[in-house]
Every structure is written in C-alpha cells, then in structure tokens.
Amino acid sequence: MAGLDKRVASYEEALAGLTDDMTVLAGGFGLCGIPENLIAEIRRRGVKGLTVVSNNCGVDGFGLGVLLEDRQIRKMIASYVGENAEFERQLLSGELEVELTPQGTLAEKMRAGGAGIPAFYTATGYGTPVAEGKEVRAFNGRHYVLEESITGDFAIVKGWKADHYGNVVYRHTAQNFNPLAATAGKITVVEVEEIVEPGVLLPSEIHTPGIYVDRVIVGTFEKRIEKRTVKA
C-alpha cells in the first residue's frame, strides 16, 4: 500500500536527492502561497548553482530571498523581482543571472512543461525585448512568439490540504503558480497545512491530482503579509 502513500516524515526526506545545479520550480505569488519550509530546507542543505523558476524571488530575509544570502541561486526565471535589495545587488554585480519572463508566459511555460508540450506560440512579448532571438510566426494575420516550456528537477509547492494519495487543494489566492509547478517537477514535493484521511477531499474539488505529486509533508507556516491593506 505504501506505493501510493506520498507522505514523508521530515523535510530532509522531502527534499532528498536535491543537489547542486538543479532546476527548482516554486509556487507562490509575492509571499502568498510560498513553500516556506521547503525553501528553508533548501537553505539548510546548502546546495548551490540552482536555477529557480518562480514568479517572484521573495523579499530580503524571507521566501526565496533567503537563498540569495548564501548565493545558492545561479539563475532566476521570474516575471517581477522588485522587492529585494540583495537581489538587486547580486544582479548588478553579475553574480546572479536573471531571465525576466512575462507572467502569463511563465505560467504557460510551466503548464505546457507539465503537459508534455515542448513549446507554444503566444502574442505576448511580440515586438519587445522578450521576443529577441525567438522564432516568430504569423497566424491569421497576427504575430506570435515561440516560447519553450519549462520543467524542473524539483517542484516545491505549498498546498492547503492534501491526503495520503497526494491529492491537493489550495486556499484562496494562495493557489497561483502552485498547481502549475506541481505538474512540471520530475520530483514534486508539496507541503500543506493539514494532511487529511483519504476520502475527506471531494474528488471533484481536487486542484492537483495525486498523480503529479511524489512527496507530501505537513508543516507550520508564518504566512507573512507583504502589503497589509485594510478598509479605511
């Protein structure tokens, strides 16, 4: 029965096999729905030379930002990286390579990667620096840019609840890139707030079916708020 039971007992076990120079896909938007504890475990392992694919790169001292402090990231693929002073320093000094990618293209690159589609055409970025060096083709009189999909050695994902089978649901807008990253990792690791008994999650409400998921672990989360905004 253990074959389909994806639960692991420790964060060390959750990221077993993660080594230098691998590509890691991470869910999250800003600090919302980020796999906080898996990021902390990457830091603890001290692996270097990583290519990290994530919409953003955390902030100084939290989220993916902590991996910058020990120079663990060689290359970042993201759509927006503006909230991080150490990021800026490493970028300007040339220590860090950055591939800025339009947000929708980044999401689709992960979706396509997980779905076995190596590349796709999109109108996004045509006529801009993003399209430089890429194949352009016209369909019905409009220009589209060929964008290659992305897969990772590991995907690190933050869910709300999962069951033993690795079926996952996300909470509110903490969903964002998480289900896409989950499909595109050779090894997909999901950390959740709660692991429930099989049967508790309704089959028709699963966001990420367990087939995509290799390891599930339960954690506790700080859930830091980036821009606390309340009604006047």
């Binding site: 993201a78 759509s79 927006y80 990286v81 503006g82 800026e88 970028l91 300007l92 800025l100 339009p102 947000q103 929708g104 293209t105 999109t122 109108a123 996004t124 970025g125 045509y126 801009t128 993003v130």
Partner: peptide, 15 residues
C-alpha cells in the same frame, strides 16, 4: 535603471 520585471503587463496588452 534597475529592471524589476514586466509582471503581467505584456500579457495584458497582447491579449
């Protein structure tokens, strides 16, 4: 100047 990224703007104007 520092480039922070395009976020979703390129997708929005293309779509």
């Amino acid at each position: 100047k520092l480039v922070k990224g395009m976020g979703g703007a390129m997708d929005l104007v293309a779509g």
